[in-house]
Structures are given as structure tokens and as C-alpha cells.
Design a protein around this nucleic acid. Structure first.
Length: 462
RNA sequence: GGCUACUUAGCAAAACGGUUAUGCAGUGGAUUGCAAAUCCAUCUACGGCGGUUCGACUCCGCCAGUAGCCUCCA
């Protein structure tokens, strides 16, 4: 029985989809004016695992993750780069897809874009006008009148009269209420625009998600996710727009993942303390980054440091080492491990506990792999299947262990390493321990570790 | 100022009202020519003060600290 923490109720709830056996999930994706950083990677990986687990549990899932490809920052960045907006956004969408593939994030079923959803956006704003929830401000922008929506603040636990207007941003005098937000922004000269009943302009930040989500999944659907920082105002505003326009409940379960931090501080573009995915992947292999993300619960903060990533590397190495040299059975038989794994994942996607189950399996595998080949093959198959739900451990163990990451490539070809190992074996036969140890030490100095196992000598990068 | 979380051993990270988390590191042992890998054993915990309870890391209250949100942000 799957339980999910719902931000709306602030408790774990038993998950019951709207339509039995089917799930619609929408996740707020990227605004594409720069490379993805590790915080974005966390969103991608976390909801990828949610999607994988829902499917593993037998649900027919439709997973939608949008791309916001028009907004003020995009316009600004394109101007700075003296680049066409579409050129800029295409470039970063491609980069995002590359990062995603690297991290073994399966693509969402639908990836709608704001610029390709203008009809839906305009229709929704029109509906909001009809319901008396939208108005045109003195500057020509169209705003949402938050005090007309009774439930405003329900998701983020905020009350309009307790919010501090103008705390960080000057109050826009064109609005009736400082917390009203833009639905349609009138375009200035030289700015891109779409035609609308309210003149040439572009959508405000929040409306595109409401429009795309309801178009792809219907007015009312099961799960909506995103980073913690989107809770307010983005998701709050999405609810106001969608429910205001359709008159129906928008989303049953709201999921928010915690931040990636650096030195106990949120990683963010505005603080400038972020690492891009591609920077990190130069140093650490993608699977290690992925393991790092799922080693803690998705709602907890995740502190980024080299030490943490190194630990993740050791952990993944241990799992692959357990699988090394084991034939994997073709059919999977679920044992108590699968049960424990499911219990962990059913408890609000507790990947930390799920991973602990994998380590218990690895320990048993290490114990039996040299004396019960058949049982080992079955256990390995089960381990690989459960790991696949987390999107890890799908490579050939030798492939993983013999691949250097960015910092440790010795430049030695595999054949050269194998030749040295052969020399060492010959030296060992002659009991020339000095030579044997020298070969081993020399390789070690280049980051290559030799391991004399039952079947011969294995090697791996440290 | 309002609101929301969090605080676990050397580091990271979970669960649970009474029973081993797990990974890395440490210590002892097995194994090894010596190592490595592996296995076995083992040391370091639950921010502080109260309360509820036969019993609390786990529930409640207060205090302290940390982080986040209060129209840039995943």
C-alpha cells in the first residue's frame, strides 16, 4: 500500500488514484536559459524514481514534465548573448536531454513547451476573465485577483494578510493587491509576443503550467511535483488559476523535493553557488551522482560535497563488486528482500531504506556466490531488478569497475593492464614476490587496484 | 514579523514506543606469500530541559541551533 506525503495535508496519505490503475503525474521542469545544475538533477532523478516505482507497482502512468521556454530571464539571456530566443532555448533543451540521458533519467511521456501551448494559455486566461478572477491592470498587464480565490494560500500555509508585501520586491502599483500575479504580460518594443484578446504579449510565469497540466492530464489529476521552492508562489498560483478556471479540484497529491545544499546553504542560480550537471559529471560518473541523490530521502536536504560523492562511489563499487563474476538468472523470483524493498518504497519512496536492502542482498551474494551458483544467480537477478527501479546497477559489473572517472584515468590501455597482470601472475608462480608486489604497487599508483579472487586476478579503478 | 521543516554515532543517512538499520571510516579475527576484495565480530548515537508511559531517539510542551518560504529559483 503506497503512501505519499502530500504537501497539501502535510501528512503521508494512502495513495488512491482517481481512476483505478491509472496515474497522471505532472512535474515542473526547467526554465531553459542555462545548463541544469545539481538541484535540477535531483528533481529529474527523484521523479524518475517515482515514475519507475509507480510503473513497477503496476500503475499505468502518464508522466508529464514541462519545459518553460519563454520568460523574462530567457529574453534577457538571449539579449546578452545576442542570440535568438529559440536558438538559446533549443540549445539548453538539448543540453538538458543530454544530462538526463547521462543520469539514466527516463524521458517523460509528454514534454510540453510553453511556446507551443499559447492557445491553451489564452483559453485559460479567458476563462479566468469570465469568472471575474482576472483583470487588466493600469499598465496593460493582465493580473489574477488573489483575494477572489477563497482557498488562496492553502498549499503553502500562507494567509494573505500575513504575507509581507514588498519585502523583497517593490510593490507593482498596477496591481489591485500586491499579491496579484501576472497572467499575461504586455510586450515592450523588441520583445517577443503572441497575439491575444489583451493585446500583444507573453504569458506570466505560472499560467503555462496550469494550461499544460490540464491539457495533458485533464482538469483534475493525481500527482503534481516539483522543487520545494515552487510551493509558493508557483504552485499556489497554479491551483488558483486551474481551479479558478475549471471550477474543479486540480491536484490530489502535491509532492515537493528538498534542496541540494552547499555548505548548508541552498544551491541556487541566484546565489551562484551551483555546480552544473556536466561539471560534476567530469569528476564523477553519472551512476554515482544518481546514487548520491537517492541515498537520502527526497524531502530531506542533500548536502553536496566531494566527500559525499566519494562515499557514494565506494557504495556503488561495493554493489557492483558483489555482482562481479555472478551469472544472473533470467527469471526473477521475489523473496523477502523484494518485500522489504517494496515496503520501503511504499513508505513515501524511502530510497535510503530501499538501498539498505540492496546492501543486505550484496552481503548475502558475497557469501554464497562461490558455493551456490544457482542461488547466487537468482539473488543477483532479484538484486538487479530491484536496482532497476532505482535506475542503478544495470551495467556490466566489470564494465563499471574497469571504467575510470574523470579524475583517475591512468591512460593505460586495458591490454597493457592485462599484460602487467600476466607478468605478475608469472612472478607469483616463481615466488618472485618483490616483482609481483612492484607491479601491483605501480598499478596502484595509477589508481588501479588488483584483487586476487578465486578465479584469478581482477582489477578495477580505485 | 508570519509560516514550514530539520537537529541521530568520526562522516553520511533511515526506521521504530521495548528487539542488528545501512554505507564509508576505525578496531579485532578469518582468508591471503603479503595485500586487496570478501566474511565474522566490535567501538563511537539519538541538540537541551521537562511531561505522558511500566518503558521514549520515537508521542507532547518549552528552549536552543540550523535551513527554507513570505511574487528570481528545482
Amino acid at each position: 500500500m503506497l503512501k505519499i506525503y502530500n504537501t497539501l495535508s502535510r501528512e503521508k496519505e494512502v495513495f488512491t488514484p482517481k481512476v483505478e490503475g491509472k496515474v497522471g503525474m505532472y512535474v515542473c521542469g526547467m526554465t531553459v536559459y542555462d545548463y541544469c545544475h545539481i538541484g535540477h538533477a535531483r528533481v529529474m532523478v527523484v521523479f524518475d524514481i517515482v515514475a519507475r516505482y509507480l510503473r513497477y507497482s503496476g500503475y499505468d502512468l502518464t508522466y508529464v514534465r514541462n519545459v518553460t521556454d519563454i520568460d523574462d530571464k530567457i529574453i534577457q539571456r538571449a539579449n546578452e548573448n545576442k542570440e535568438e530566443i529559440s536558438e538559446l532555448t533549443e540549445r539548453f533543451i538539448d543540453a538538458m536531454h543530454e544530462d538526463e540521458r547521462e543520469l539514466s533519467v527516463l524521458p517523460p511521456d509528454i514534454e510540453p513547451r510553453a511556446t507551443k501551448s499559447m492557445d491553451d494559455i489564452i483559453l485559460m486566461i479567458t476563462a479566468l476573465f469570465e469568472k471575474g478572477l482576472a483583470y487588466t491592470g493600469s499598465n496593460g498587464d493582465v493580473f489574477y485577483a488573489v483575494d477572489k480565490f477563497a482557498n488562496y494560500g492553502a498549499l503553502s500555509g500562507k494567509k494573505l494578510d500575513e504575507l509581507q508585501a514588498g519585502e523583497r520586491v517593490d510593490v507593482n502599483l498596477a496591481k489591485k493587491n500586491p499579491f496579484d500575479f501576472v497572467l499575461w504580460k504586455k510586450s515592450k518594443v523588441d520583445e517577443p509576443y503572441w497575439n491575444s484578446p489583451w493585446g500583444r504579449g507573453r504569458p506570466g510565469w505560472h499560467i503555462e503550467c496550469s494550461a499544460m497540466a490540464t491539457r495533458c492530464l485533464g482538469h483534475h489529476f493525481d500527482i503534481h511535483g516539483g522543487g520545494m521552492d515552487l510551493q509558493f508562489p508557483h504552485h499556489e498560483n497554479e491551483i488558483a488559476q486551474s481551479e479558478g478556471a475549471t471550477g474543479e479540484k486540480f491536484v490530489n497529491v502535491w509532492m515537493h523535493n528538498g534542496f541540494v545544499r552547499i555548505n548548508e546553504e541552498k544551491m541556487s542560480k541566484s546565489l551562484g553557488n551551483f555546480f552544473t550537471v556536466r561539471e560534476v559529471l567530469k569528476q564523477y560518473r553519472a551512476e554515482i551522482v544518481r546514487f548520491f541523490v537517492l541515498s537520502s530521502h527526497y524531502r530531506s536536504p542533500l548536502n553536496y560535497s566531494d566527500e559525499q560523492l566519494d562515499d557514494a562511489g565506494s557504495a556503488v563499487t561495493r554493489l557492483y563488486t558483489a555482482l562481479r563474476g555472478v551469472v544472473v538468472a533470467t527469471d526473477v523470483q521475489a523473496t523477502d528482500y523484494t518485500l522489504r524493498f517494496k515496503q520501503a518504497m511504499d513508505d513515501d519512496f524511502n530510497t535510503a531504506v530501499a538501498v539498505a536492502v540492496l546492501f543486505d542482498m550484496a552481503r548475502e551474494l558475497n557469501k554464497i556466490k562461490n558455493n551456490d551458483v544457482e542461488l547466487a544467480a537468482q539473488l543477483a537477478a532479484e538484486l538487479k531488478e530491484l536496482s532497476s527501479v532505482l535506475g542503478i546497477l544495470q551495467d556490466d559489473p566489470d564494465e563499471f569497475l574497469k571504467t575510470a572517472d574523470g579524475t583517475q584515468d591512468s591512460g593505460l590501455a586495458e591490454q597493457a593492464i592485462e599484460a602487467l597482470i600476466a607478468q605478475r601472475i608469472a612472478a607469483k608462480k616463481n615466488k618472485d614476490w618483490a616483482l609481483a608486489d612492484k607491479i601491483r604497487d605501480d598499478l596502484k599508483a595509477q589508481g588501479i587496484v588488483l584483487e586476487d579472487v578465486a578465479t584469478g586476478t581482477s582489477w578495477r579503478y580505485e
